[in-house]
Amino acid sequence: MTLPRVTLTDPKALRGYAHPLRMSLIALLRAQGPTTATRAAEQLGESVASCSFHLRQLAKYGLAERAPGADGRERPWRATALATYWDDDSDDPQVRAATDELNAAQLALYTRRAQEFLARRPEEPAAWRAVTAFSDWPLHVTPEELAELDERIDAVLSTYDDRITDPSRRPAGSRRVSFVRLAVLPPPAAPEAGEGESDPKRAADRDER
């Protein structure tokens, strides 16, 4: 299945989303469902006024909306979709500049989440510690091959989408996991990671933290 998505194409919307608290608010709404600014502030360690302001900004860009049936006292918010997409390769220089800002904000958010996880990882059960780690796997591929690999990974990950939309499909003992995928190119003059290794898996294992 394909998760309901919202696609950002306008530079103002792209820059509007490129804010750490706004990205955290959307993540919270998607994970927990309709939430008030007060409850969001408690969970994110922010002020109610700040959360309320940024939720209104998210609504302006089509990322959040008032939940149906909200009364004048509670007034919860909900995400308009379960995934956000944008084009990293637009012909419009303004859109490219805005997506660069958004990608940088997203990377900073991923880094912060990883640091927070590492701080609490020693308290996690052994079974989860054994399967959560960082790794770097060197590849020599063409752009077409990398695009194909990306599609194959998407296809595997999408087999778990129904568990996001239907909690009854989640098996006992499952937890929400943030699976981050990066594909980056080293500088042209930099040595390739893993060069000279006869076993790429061993080279990747040594980079695990």
Rank of each mutant, 00 (worst) to 15 (best):
F53Y: 09
L21R: 12
H54S: 05
D10H: 10
L182F: 00
L182G: 02
R30F: 01
E144Q: 15
T142C: 02
D205F: 11
A49S: 15
D87C: 09
A67G: 12
I26S: 00
P11E: 10
E101C: 15
G62Q: 02
N103W: 02
R120I: 14
S47W: 12
D207V: 07
A130R: 13
L139I: 15
P143Y: 06
A147R: 12
E148A: 14
G33K: 09
G33W: 10
Q32T: 14
L58H: 00
T35Q: 14
P20C: 03
P171M: 08
L3G: 03
Q115A: 12
P76A: 02
I153E: 11
I26H: 03
A83L: 11
G62H: 06
V156S: 06
A13H: 06
T142E: 12
A97I: 00
R96H: 06
E74V: 15
E46D: 12
T9E: 09
S50Q: 14
S135P: 01
L44M: 09
K60M: 05
P4G: 09
V131W: 01
V180Y: 12
D205R: 15
R22F: 02
A59C: 06
R176S: 12
T159V: 07
L58S: 03
R75Q: 10
T80D: 09
E65D: 15
C51S: 07
A183M: 12
P4L: 07
A119M: 01
Q115H: 10
G72E: 10
A70Y: 02
S174P: 06
L185I: 03
R30Q: 14
Y85I: 11
E192I: 07
S47A: 13
A41I: 08
A190T: 13
D166R: 11
T159A: 15
Q106Y: 11
T111K: 07
Q43I: 03
W86R: 01
A18H: 05
L139R: 13
P191A: 05
R175F: 11
P186W: 03
T99L: 09
P186K: 09
V131M: 11
A105P: 04
V156K: 08
V177A: 13
A189C: 01
S198R: 15
E124K: 06
V156M: 14
F53W: 10
L63H: 01
A203Q: 05
R56E: 11
R5W: 07
P188M: 08
E65C: 08
L157Y: 01
W77V: 02
A40T: 04
A193Y: 13
